[in-house]
Write a protein that binds this DNA or RNA. Sequence first.
RNA 1: GGCCUUGUGGUCAAGCGGUUAAGACGGCGCCCUCUCACGGCGCAAUCCCGGGUUCGAUUCCCGGCAAGGUCACCA
Length: 546
Amino acid sequence: MDYRKLAERLLPGDYPAPEFYEEKYPPRTLPAGAEVTRLAPSPTGFIHLGNLFAAIANERVAHRSGGILYLRIEDTDLKRKVDGAVEAVIAALKYFDIKFDEGAEIGGDETYAPWYQRKRAEIYRAFAKKLIEEGRAYPCFCTEAELSALREEQTKRKEITGYYGKYARCRNLTEEEIYKNLDAGKPFVLRLRSLGNPENKLKLRDAVKGEITVTENDQDVVILKSDGIPTYHFAHAIDDHFMRTTLVIRGEEWLASLPIHVELFDALGFRRPRYGHNCSLMKQDGETRRKLSKRKDPELSLEFYRKEGYYPRAVKVYMLTLLNSNFEEWYLKNPGADLNGFPFKVEKMSKSGALFDLDKLNDISRNELALLDEKTMLAFLKDWAEEFGTEAQKNYFADEEKMLRVLALCMGVGGKKRRKDFTTASQAMEYIKYFFERPETHEEYRAGKETVSAVLRDFLQGYSPADDSQVWFGKVKEVAAAHGYAAEMRDYKASPESYKGSVADVAEILRIATTGRANTPDLYTIMQILGEGETRARLGCAAEQP
RNA sequence: GGCCUUGUGGUCAAGCGGUUAAGACGGCGCCCUCUCACGGCGCAAUCCCGGGUUCGAUUCCCGGCAAGGUCACCA
């Protein structure tokens, strides 16, 4: 068969020779050991936790090694295209401090552009044509119906499905048949003529999994779809070669198609990049565990964390603890340290899929928030409230001075120990509500109504905002003693039966009356922040209707 | 079903021929304490199973089993 003639018929016109592209996209001049990694999302605009997981790994590897992280958009499937998606991806990742050195909508060095696969059609066709000329690719005229019939047949006979060996009908079409189909205007795809044999195993080194066994590919996979656009596999080989990627870190779900990629790189005469297949995030679902899914699990969406008001750094810290097992230990020794200072290693990446653990994230989140100073916290909460808060919550920020005092108290700023009362912004806003709004409901008092009223009236009598905390607490003790409660905790513990209760119970009455809650930070400071008028109003109100 | 990957407490995991089998989260208890939070101390809980190899296997080999992934003109 005259392959050159066929190639010209299938992809007419002059295409540059491979050498042209080798020169146009020369090997990068980077220091020894520098890795070039990439993120290659399809432009759906939906970027989730799994994407972030891989993104952090790619970013860390590139930047730890003095290399490059770039963004390539895999827009070969029109159905997946969403307007503004690329900007959304960039913004979402920037939120987690992941920045690209080059790529779509990034600007900078244009040497390896374009970064949209749709704009690279000529390159793919040039190499497809070359493959046809070499007899390594052929047109396939099978219709979708024929293909699914074939698949059905294979399934019924319990054979491996796909287009391969004796099932690859168009692989052995005669020259006449091909031209007859072409003349008839039949649409066609271009398939790889696979030379592989699945009996043959190939041992490869995966950067995260170590030694892996790969079965040779024997599928005549589609490389150019009927619209002349490449499939993922073909575009991957060409793009990662000419963009000079050194390390492809991608999800484990790609491991199954690695044989295809191996054969494609070989057929094209390209040196393969190194691969690292990372595990996916799992979720417990009843008895079994499964990959986090877009439809079922809201926590997969990055939007979920923004809405809840997780501090972005907390999410990143959690991702890093899952990504590198020694990260947690390092971070324990260097709390609040620059995350980029951690010596991230691909080899340290986990080989098995981790169950996503919200408890752990929450713990990390509390710790991260406790690390902030009140100004940073204020800015974070304010931003959150602007976007997701209620009108009332937005108003909390009208008096910044007061908010700063509230935050300082709730975070334990100035005290010996930081407080860790909230894990997210939404929770924090709920938590500090009583500083800004009168409590609508009050938790149950343990004391009886008469006692509550009496205690409150008594306290109100002696209350003076000028008191310091010592004097203030002294007065609480006096009230306690006057109503049959132990003023000193140790007295109460020594003989609980001699008292109605202890100061703690009296403090509880005051606490619930002013905040509505039985548990709050230091009550003295709360009254100071509320001010005399508000404090008296709340206590008085509670005294009348406990 | 074929192929590939993975199996250490409930979760994330360190260890990789000899260890009382780290640590973190969660759970429970105690202490501190005007409540809560913080902090401190402690407890319960783990090497998937069966064969080898070895003086000795959680660690090495083989075989099971289980879980996950994947089998498109989607990426």
